[in-house]
Structure formats: structure tokens, C-alpha cells
Design a protein around this nucleic acid. Structure first.
Lengths: 332, 332
DNA sequence: TTGTATGCGTTATCAC
DNA sequence: GTGATAACGCATACAA
């Protein structure tokens, strides 16, 4: 492997100058910079990131911690983040929390061991506050939260406009003439889900409808839970469900089908996240889209911006968008 | 940050001994090992991976290069690989090639700069041979290929049993009574796709059916291409399609629907990869499942095994499995 | 603008 | 079984 000393020798200068030239320092004559760059290219030099990291105390790596990598939402966020990081010479170290605080802590420790420059994280559903995140992140590392965030933690936060998204989705169901609309609400330990529930409630009351705690279903984020909630919702006379996830919405559709109900005529459903399958199933599932790729880009950009001392990025809210499909389109 | 010297001082021994104790060397008294471990725990020590990497010449990181991270197949492979790597103290550095050889090379350079111990790769569709992979990987790094592999390259390869998978899928269609079965074959620069085409041909000839080049459609791996191929297949009198991907199969279904054909009565389809949506669409799509999570685990295990000098892992073939669904079930 | 000197934290080699 | 020493490659403070 070629080192900066090899380049220095070959040019009859010292490693310091080569280092400066290569890292874009001002204090290098233009001609020597060019010479260094050419020689580096010619000799096939590649910076030893380990040495650089050791010396600088941090690496050209950003950790990304997500509950599960194989969720469409998260894999798209990662894709977006990676595209921006890549432009700036950073790599992404990916860790999964499996929705589990202990694994989340382990992931953060791994990242700290690797002296990552930043951590982009969407917390596990079982994490009820961000204490463990602060405790296991190096003070120099830049923390960026996305989607599932703790507002108590410092640093940039990229979130969907959960309140207005749920508001829109619920209003859409009301406008379609549904009279008793339940919600599959998720876990209130997550601010994202809490905001969605609030949006739902606000839409109901703005439209003069009653809020009924008996048709608010907590604690489900997978298909099976949505199915169970759907059955109870039907028992309790619901003719529609707003769901804070597409998998749970899928479960609700399944419950309706089992009861022999027609969708959307007898029962309406709107989900959240616009998973790939939502457009493909029959009936197709209306959903509040979240733009994960864009969120990933924003998260990475927030990291890059925060690298400059003094620069502050606050909360970035990405709008959600109602994708109307068959499952809620009773009126043409 | 706590270093091994801090631990050494606190115990009145030298850093060398602490290092040995912590890295599981034999030449350490049991009692001192215990003392070191306890003190390390107590002081909150975490190894500086950068320093370790610099000294050892390689890091506790494995690079994973995939065409796109947001394909269900690849994100599940990554998930499987990560679970095994994690057990062994390795992290995963993820790079995307975007199906593009230039990006693939860039990814490999990044990984080499990071002195990764291994590279797990499924090559971009535009890479027609593995020269650039060999050229851009450090000689010490362990190369493991999965799914899309070049058999000309050395090292472990984890592949689906593409030949028999396609054979099974095609035979299934024949058994269901379809008479003229086309294939959406993909790119022949990829050995995986070539093997599938061979399996298809073998099934046809074993069952006494003619192979017709006019209904072999090359070059499509996305939905739109499958749609175009499907239309031509119908023009040419096909009553079934075996597709080497589920997205292309989806396109073929779309073409059949446009022509007003009933599936599976008038037209049968079997896809490949068993994407999540395949079970959820109507009609549900029969598909050759590939077990990506398992393939990821195997790939990572192959890496771990190859770490031991002398250990050799060859080609591991993971069976494919026919998932019969509505799109091909003409006979009950 | 360039050179000199030093150290980041770890591990390997050697000596005891 | 433990200690002393050196070196991995790079980036910076300081000097010139």
C-alpha cells in the first residue's frame, strides 16, 4: 500500500506537505499541490482511514441505526442518506436495533468504538426515552434523529408531519362519508405515533365528530396486531379505520374481508407509510406517504451542515402526502 | 476515553499485558485476565477500533456491496449477514452499486480505504466480468460473492439453485396444462440469469416441449420491461410466462389484465424472488422463493470461516422453493 | 510555503 | 507470564 511518505520521497518533499496538499489545506503552493495529486494518482495512493481516524479522533464514517433494515421505509431512508454521505466522502455503518433498546445500545457502542463522526438514528419502539442514546454516543459525534425522535435530545431532527398527515387521512375518510372511524394508533412512547393520534383526534373534532376511546387501538405495529384491532373495531361498529402503518392497515383489510365486507363500500381504510405493496394489493390501499428517501437525504445533509462549527440545524418537518386508492374511495 | 494504558496504570501492570488479556491471548495468568476484564468493565473501556485497525492492518468491519439496498431481496440478505457478523464482533459497511460498474468500483475503493477484513458482494448487472472486483480489493481481504457471482473469481460463493428453481417453476406451469410458455430471462451477463434460462429450457425439453427463441425475452429486470415483454408474449400466442423476477412477472400480469385475460385460467405466471407484494396482490403471484436472509447468514459465515488460515469454503447452493399461488393454479 | 517533531492507541516482537 | 520497545500512517503545533 502506498503511503504519504512514499509520495513525499518520490517528490523529494516531506510527508507533512503531502498530507496538507491531500487534505486541501490552504498553506500549500498550487504547483506542489498539483504535483502531489498527480503523483498520488499515479502511484495509486489511497488514504489509510484507520490512521487518519486514529490521529483525528474520528472517522469518515457515519453510523445509521434503524429498527430493521428490511422495512421499505428504513431501507429507503438509508438509500437517501447514503447518496448524500457518499458525495461528501463519508461511508455508512449500518446497525439494526430490532426494535429493542438493548440492541440499540449495543449498536451505539459499536459506533462509538468506530469513532464515527455522526449517528443517524430512528429509535427502537421499546425505547421510551433517549437517555441511553446520550449515554452511549461520543460527545464529539453529531446526533441526527429521524422519523422516531425524542424531542428531549439535542441536535437536528427530521420528522414527517405526523400530525397533519393523520389529520388529512382522517379528514379524507370523513369526507368519504364514513361515520365511525377507528384508529390503529401504535405505541404512545413514540412521539411520531402520539402526534398521529393527535392529528386524528383533531380532525374528528374539527369535523364535529365524537372521539371514542373504545375505538382507539394501541400497541400494534404489525399485520397481526392490525388484524386483531380490525376485528374489534368491526365488533364495535366502525365503518372505517385510519391506521398509523400500512402493515396494520393490511391486517384490518384482512379482518374486513373475513367478515365478508366490501371495501370501500362497507368499510374504508387509510394506512401510513405507503409501502410498496399498498399500490399492488386488491383493493389497493390508500396511504399517507412519507418520502423516506428524501428524509434520508435531509438527515445526511443535516449531519454535513452540523460539521461546521457553529452551524445549527433544528427540526425539519417533511410533509406527508395522501395517496388516494381504492380502499377509501367510496365517492368517485 | 479510557485506554488500555489507563487500565494498566490502575492495576500496576503494563499495557502489553492488558492488551493480551483483552484479546484473549493464552499467555496471561487467569487471575490477571479477570482483574483486567473487571477493571475494563468498571472504567467503561471500549477498544479504539481505529488504533487496532491501524496496527493490525485490517479492521473489524466487513463491506457489503449490493446493487440497491431497498430491494427486499438485498435488504434481507444484509439483515442475515449482519446478524452473523454481529455475533462475531464485526460491523457491516454498506455500499450500493446502483447496478453500475463505476459505482461498484468506487464502493470497493472505499472499502479498501477502510481496510475491511472482507467484502460480501452481489455484482451490478452492468458488470460483465469480475476483473474490476479483483483489482480493487485488498489481497488480504476475504471476498465472498452471493446471488450474482462470477465463477471466474476465487473465494466462497453463495448462490441460489437457479437452474433447478427455474426448472421447477417451468415444470409447474407445464403440469398446470399451459401449452406455450415464454420466459422473461434477464441479462445473460449474469450467471444467475443464464442458469435460470437453462433450467427453463431443460424443463421444456424434458417434458417434450419445443424451445422457441421468439418467446425468450432478454434484458428486462423491472416492471415496465416485464410489461412490454408480456405484451409481445401474448401477441405471439403464449398462455404462460415464467419470469426470472417478481417485478417483471408483475408487469406480465398487468399486460394480461389489459388484454382482458383471466389469470390463471387463460394465462399463467410464475415469478422469482418471492417479493413481499407477491403474496398480497390479486391474483397472488406464484414465485420461486430464494431465502435471502439465509443466504446472507451463509455469506457471513463463509467469511468467518475463511478467516482461519487454510480453511476453504467453496460454492454453497441454497435451494429455491416453489410457492404456489393463484397466478398459476389452474388445476386445484 | 515548507519542514521538524510528536503522538493518536493498539499490538507484535523480543527479551526476561 | 510479563514487561519494554517499536511501529502502523497520518495530521497537527510549532518552528523556520
Amino acid at each position: 500500500m502506498v503511503t504519504i511518505s512514499d509520495i513525499a520521497k518520490s517528490l523529494g518533499i516531506t510527508p507533512s506537505t503531502v498530507s496538507r496538499a491531500l487534505s486541501g489545506s490552504e498553506r500549500v503552493k498550487e504547483s506542489t499541490r498539483k504535483a502531489v495529486e498527480e503523483t498520488a494518482e499515479k502511484m495509486g495512493y489511497e488514504r489509510n482511514e484507520a490512521a487518519s481516524s486514529l490521529r483525528k479522533g474520528r472517522s469518515k464514517v457515519v453510523g445509521i441505526v434503524v429498527p430493521r433494515i428490511n422495512r421499505e421505509f428504513f431501507s429507503n431512508v438509508i438509500g437517501g442518506a447514503e447518496s448524500v454521505l457518499d458525495e461528501h466522502g463519508y461511508s455508512a455503518l449500518i446497525c439494526q436495533s430490532h426494535e429493542n433498546t438493548l440492541d440499540e445500545i449495543k449498536a451505539l457502542k459499536t459506533l462509538r468504538s468506530n469513532r464515527v463522526s455522526g449517528v443517524l438514528i430512528s429509535h427502537a419502539i421499546s425505547s421510551t426515552n433517549g437517555e441511553h442514546i446520550l449515554e452511549n454516543i461520543a460527545p464529539e459525534a453529531i446526533l441526527v434523529q429521524f422519523d422516531r425522535v425524542f424531542s428531549s435530545l439535542p441536535g437536528p431532527k427530521i420528522i414527517s408531519d405526523n400530525f397533519h398527515g393523520a389529520y388529512e387521512g382522517t379528514r379524507h375518510l370523513i369526507e368519504q362519508g364514513y361515520k365511525k372511524i377507528g384508529i390503529i394508533a401504535g405505541f404512545m412512547t413514540s412521539e411520531a405515533y402520539a402526534a398521529r393520534l393527535n392529528g386524528y383526534k383533531q380532525a374528528l373534532s374539527d369535523m364535529g365528530m365524537e372521539i371514542d376511546e373504545d375505538i382507539i387501538f394501541y400497541g400494534s405495529i404489525v399485520q397481526k396486531g392490525g388484524y386483531e384491532a380490525g376485528k374489534i373495531a368491526l365488533d364495535r361498529g366502525c365503518d372505517a379505520i385510519f391506521s398509523t402503518g400500512d402493515y396494520t392497515a393490511l391486517g384490518a383489510l384482512q379482518a374486513a374481508r373475513e367478515r365478508g365486507l366490501r371495501v370501500p363500500e362497507d368499510f374504508g381504510v387509510v394506512g401510513t407509510a405507503d409501502e410498496r405493496f399498498s399500490a399492488l394489493i386488491t383493493p389497493s390501499l390508500s396511504s399517507m406517504a412519507q418520502h423516506p428517501y428524501e428524509m434520508g437525504r435531509r438527515a445526511a445533509q443535516a449531519f454535513i451542515t452540523s460539521l461546521k462549527p457553529g452551524a445549527k440545524v433544528g427540526e425539519i418537518v417533511v410533509p406527508m402526502e395522501l395517496i388516494k386508492r381504492e380502499s377509501s374511495s367510496r365517492i368517485q
